[in-house]
Amino acid sequence: MTADVWLPIPPDEIEGLPEGPRYLFWDGGENGEQEYPADPAHCAFYAVPYLKPHAARVAPLKHLSGVRVVQTLTAGIDDVLSRLSDIRPGVQLCNARGVHEASTAELALTLTLASLRGIPDFVRAQDRGEWKSGFRPALADRNVLIVGYGSIGAAIEDRLVPFEVARVARVARSARTTERGPVHPLADLPALLPEADVVILATPLTDATRGLAGADFLARMKDGALLVNVARGPVVDTKALLTEVESGRLRAALDVTDPEPLPPGHPLWQAPGVLISPHVGGPTSAFLPRAKRLLADQLTRFVNQEPLRNVMLTTGVSGA
């Protein structure tokens, strides 16, 4: 029987798909209630819908008894990891490395610059017809700490270079050396945080990073420092962050929050020194062309029985 491939983008809109599989369109609908395009047991390659509610993305997993690859279109795979027990053993779980780096790094710099230079205040003043000038912090000559130095963290540093920052420090799960300098382990954070004027979170959400930016982490940040989160909301302890920003000691620029979506009336909306964007690091004009190229490449490898890219884990293997 021909293997089915479920795609959240209409197959006729993706150039370069290899012959062989039967390509079926399924984007989950709003809550996963959209009728499946075929028997899920025949699906060998499941590309997870993008920008759909969690329930929609994971709904088919327990029914995909013959699946061999689950391909996300997100940089993080935490949504699928939360339902790992629904996936049969031996399935390769791949992320979308190469799709979101540029857009997410752009937003990290946008949030950093907008917050430092007071752009939200200028917009509010413009609405009132007020001319409000004065000195604002610059990114130039500042120390920046990037927490989470994978492909997105590296892309953020690429874009920091022209801004003449004084120093970039890098932190990841484990220490290593890059062309730009050392990457410190998470254990070095207590020593690095007090030196940073801007702390940018770009780390995956794992057991080790959930609540990483908690009360102790935030307390070690210097007075007036800026926390930028383009990772996942639960990497930051919201209650601890509110304590710091409401006191005026720290500022924050957040593309992700916990809870998310941030409900009306939540104190973060009105907290002083806080800039919020609604999780828009990935959905830009760059997404669709890059996602299509990734899917065509992965499926060509899949059909030709070549090693896939971006394999994060194989289910049923020790440690998965």
Rank of each mutant, 00 (worst) to 15 (best):
M1W: 06
M1Q: 13
M1E: 08
T2L: 04
D12K: 02
E13K: 04
L17P: 00
G20W: 10
Y23N: 07
F25G: 09
G28M: 08
G29E: 03
E33D: 11
Y36E: 10
D39H: 10
A44G: 14
F45N: 08
Y46T: 12
A47V: 14
V48L: 03
H54C: 06
H54L: 09
V58M: 05
L61G: 10
K62I: 15
H63I: 06
H63C: 08
L64Y: 05
S65Y: 02
R68N: 09
T72Q: 05
T72K: 02
I77L: 14
D79F: 00
D79H: 13
L84G: 07
D86V: 01
I87N: 02
Q92W: 01
A96H: 02
E101W: 01
E101H: 03
A102M: 01
S103P: 12
T110P: 03
L113P: 02
F122M: 15
D127S: 15
R128L: 15
K132W: 12
G134F: 09
G134M: 02
P137D: 12
A138Y: 10
A140K: 04
N143L: 05
L145Y: 14
I146C: 11
Y149K: 13
S151G: 07
I156L: 01
E157I: 09
R159V: 03
R159Y: 05
P162Y: 09
V165Y: 11
A166P: 04
A166M: 01
R167V: 06
V168C: 12
V168H: 06
A169S: 14
V171N: 04
A175S: 15
R180G: 06
G181V: 00
L186T: 04
L192D: 06
V198I: 13
A202C: 08
T209F: 14
A215C: 02
A219S: 15
G224K: 13
A225V: 13
G233K: 14
V235C: 09
K239F: 06
L242I: 10
E246F: 10
S247T: 14
V256S: 09
D258H: 14
L268D: 07
P272A: 08
V274G: 05
I276W: 07
T284A: 06
T284V: 10
L288G: 11
A291W: 04
L295Y: 00
A296H: 07
R301M: 03
V303E: 01
R309F: 01
M312I: 13
T315L: 04
G316T: 00
G316F: 05
S318H: 11
G319D: 05
